[in-house]
Simulated scan of single mutants.
Amino acid sequence: MTDNAWFQTISINFISILIVLTIAASVLQGFFRGGSGSARHFVAMLVEAVLAILAMFLAWKGVQLISPWIQMWLKDQNLQIPTTDISALKQAYYTVITSLRDFPLLRFGVLFILGYVIIKQILNHVVDLVLGRWLAERFAMPKRSHSILSSVSGGAIGSIAGFARALMLIAILFIYVSLFPHSMLTPYIESSHMYQKGAQEVISPFTGDFIAEKAPVFTRAVEQEFTNILQRKYEVLDAKIPGNIADAAKEITANATTDEEKAKLLYSWVGTRVQYDWNKVKLYEEQRIWKEQTPEDTFNTKEGVCIDYSRLYAQMARSIGLDVKVVTGLGYDGQGGYGPHAWNEVYLKETNKWVPLDSTWVASGANWFNPPNFDQTHVRDV
């Protein structure tokens, strides 16, 4: 039974329960706080919501102005990934800094979060100075115990606050469903009648077609950028190219005249010289021990798994001036399923295109250098 089928067998929808509990908790809070206490809390919640929206708006506008400047400043630093041995801390530093420089969504997201936190703190302090005393005086808690009328009015105010919180929860779920329509949780969320009512009657009319039109484009952009960040990690990790690898790549491609010829020669060499290390796979599957190795280790031992083939190919290709990526994702296992896999993409100047290749699968006897059906057997990480 799949996880999704397991969800469908549960007659009680926990999304609906969560929404009901959100409203019920607010009603109980209001009942025990009384009328004045609930009113003060409700006003404070409204103020907090307004401040959050204002902070997000200001952060959004601020980042739109500052992000290009930050990118230009980072480019002016002429930061180059060292081709010498560097520590893990420096590897992380170069991965982060060059990613912020080269990947706009990542840069925008980091700056937006920082801007929101700073602006929100400033706005909170300003409001505390301006409204804090007024709220304390206007909605002062009575010293005596609450009357029944006060508790009932508090509960009524709490119910309004509860519905507002429930709508916020539904809005978050609505965004999740829009961004991840194929997620395992999406059908379960959509099966909640309370979610359906809030999403269809309040959230969806309010947003119109904006999320429906923008979400798929945004999701694809985030997926692509996340893939680029993973690739950047390997670019930094394997920036230093050992002399023996560079010499071998130069010798292998000595008679090639085009990028495609060079890329194919390296693809064939790595695929036929390196043997798949089934013992490494067995060690990980049975004992969860991962034998990390560098491209130089793979070159010297002539053994490795898909990520090792891909990293070695990338180093050899870069050593002769080719632009290449290490791509991670899922590969078809030949038995109707997919498993973790890694391969490469290389840029060919003659055609001005990135083409995929899988040197690990050379041993299969088929052509895995930019075949027409490559995307049917290889699925990128998202």
Rank of each mutant, 00 (worst) to 15 (best):
S150R: 07
K143S: 11
N124R: 15
L169T: 11
T186V: 07
T95M: 13
L149D: 12
W134Q: 07
I119K: 11
L149R: 13
I172R: 01
G115Y: 05
R144P: 02
L135S: 06
Y176F: 09
L105D: 03
P187R: 12
N124P: 05
S153H: 02
Y176E: 01
V152F: 10
G155M: 04
G154K: 03
A136D: 15
P181W: 14
D128Q: 13
L106V: 01
S150K: 02
S159Y: 10
M141K: 11
T186D: 11
L123W: 06
A171G: 12
S150V: 03
F163M: 15
E137A: 11
F139T: 00
R144C: 03
V110N: 02
V177D: 10
D102R: 01
Y176R: 00
L129H: 10
V130M: 14
G155F: 08
S183Q: 06
D102H: 11
I113N: 05
Y188T: 09
S178K: 08
P142Y: 04
G115S: 11
F174G: 07
N124E: 12
P187S: 10
L173N: 02
S150I: 03
T95P: 05
S150M: 06
N124G: 10
I113A: 12
L111K: 12
V117C: 14
G162K: 00
D128T: 07
A164W: 04
H182G: 13
L114M: 09
A171H: 03
R144T: 14
L169W: 05
A164P: 03
I97F: 12
R144D: 13
K120M: 09
H146G: 10
M184T: 15
V127W: 08
I170W: 00
F180H: 03
R107F: 01
S151G: 05
P181R: 02
L167F: 08
G162Y: 01
G115H: 06
F139R: 00
V126Q: 04
A161V: 02
Y176P: 01
I175Y: 04
M141G: 05
S183Y: 06
F180R: 02
V152S: 02
Y116R: 00
T95D: 05
P187W: 09
E137M: 09
K143L: 12
A164R: 04
V130E: 08
V96I: 15
W134C: 00
S147L: 08
L105Y: 08
I119E: 07
L123I: 14
